[in-house]
Design a protein around this nucleic acid. Structure first.
Lengths: 234, 234
DNA sequence: CCAAAAGTGTTTCCGATACACCCATGT
DNA sequence: ACATGGGTGTATCGGAAACACTTTTGG
């Protein structure tokens, strides 16, 4: 069969903006670039797509190779394709953002992969257009988290309401009213209370909760304002 | 400077899902494919990206070449990259969706470009993964339209509230309560009432409105449910 | 006993819904 | 005059926000 002979090919990479939560602050995982140019500068986790794999597969493969992480929550952000975004050679990048539980991988990431967590407002100058990617990813994270319960991906299996609130406050960079926050979250039907308390952060201790996964899928879509009965559509 | 020698390139295309509104129904613009294979089958507006242009520029250029349309509302949807999505050759496609005012281009499109409008529920079998793209685009359109006033892009400069309501009903495939709908839309502060009536559709006639563009930008973001004062974030 | 954090209760307000009715006008 | 669609009014309900208080327990 004939091919599209007069069309020109380009390199395609994937870059991944990896968010984590340490219990107090939202953080970003970065590595130091190991090839020229810009070797040693901080960078998102990136790599090239193989022609025989899908972008999603490529993003997952690159993520695993560079961090050991598997089966994490990932979302395609968008394509970055400014013609001069990569000074070496024309290359598109398909940006993804990922949400992981920091503690589950902390040692492995720093020891084996020399990746480092940064506070969002202490992120250094990154290579290429990675700062722009990060900015968009954070915006998208806020946007999506305001509509869907995705932030649970950043927490361990068991978590307390105050932890959850700290997470939301970190992501949205605001304070929430404690009493309204807990009631609002509990009213979603997504949380299951455990008979166990976390005594780390206070004398009284806060009850642990887990996510009710059946409700998670059912309640993933909710509350769009304009349309009556929005559940129907999504 | 050295290049990324061991990375393999791929073809990158853009495809555009073009929505229009004829006053009653939401419609989709399609063309018949003019190259082998699948010649003659219905297809979205697509074309290959040149290496020296950005994806957005490519999508706009392709759109103009195939329809004559310029300066229309366009949004990147996502990359479609299943390895076997194009049987001819490995190719990614960056999907966009566009919103246009049907009447402004009706003749031009059919006469010069042989493009045709289809009702959404009468869309034929399309080439490749274009049906899947359409499905996602429609979902995305509903999603975004529920949160932002983008549907005005589908209407002419002057429009009536009943027209606007028909549009929303078309996009969401539901009926809205007339009285609540007009009040809700008027309360956004986006509409400017004109001293002129459209007498086409009724004896009484319905007042024309235009979009207040200053408010449009200011009110583009609104009303995300979980977060207090969401305006701040977007 | 007290400080510090967790958790529950109450009031107010606004927007969403569900209704019924009046208005303008071409036939 | 009347049918047809356009437009406004109103009562009700529920969720969001603002605020105060009680509970628990380690020191």
């Amino acid at each position: 069969m004939q091919k599209y002979t007069n069309a020109k090919k380009v390199l395609v990479a994937t870059d991944c903006i990896i968010f984590g939560f340490d219990g107090w602050n939202l953080k970003l995982l970065l590595v130091q670039r190991n090839i020229e140019p810009e070797i040693g500068r901080w960078s998102l986790m990136g790599g090239f797509m193989e022609p025989d794999e899908s972008p999603d597969a490529a993003a997952n493969r690159v993520l695993e190779q560079r961090t050991g992480l598997k089966n994490v929550y990932m979302d395609q952000l968008r394509v970055f394709g400014n013609p001069d975004r990569d000074p070496v050679e024309r290359a598109l990048s398909i940006a993804y953002f990922a949400l992981i539980d920091i503690h589950q991988y902390e040692k492995q990431l720093s020891d084996e992969y020399h990746a480092e967590w940064f506070l969002l407002d202490e992120v250094p100058e990154l290579i290429f257009d990675h700062n722009e990617m990060l900015k968009l990813a954070h915006k998208q994270l806020m946007y999506k988290a305001a509509l869907h319960p995705i932030l649970f991906q950043l927490l361990p299996e068991k978590f307390t309401i105050p932890q959850l609130q700290a997470l939301y406050e970190g992501v949205f960079e605001t304070k929430f009213d404690d009493r309204n926050f807990s009631r609002k979250l509990l009213s979603t039907g997504l949380l299951v209370k455990l008979n166990e308390k976390d005594k780390q952060s206070s004398k009284k201790g806060a009850f642990y909760y887990t996510l009710d996964k059946s409700h998670y899928i059912k309640n993933f879509n909710a509350f769009l304002n304009l349309v009556p009965n929005p559940d129907k559509f999504f």
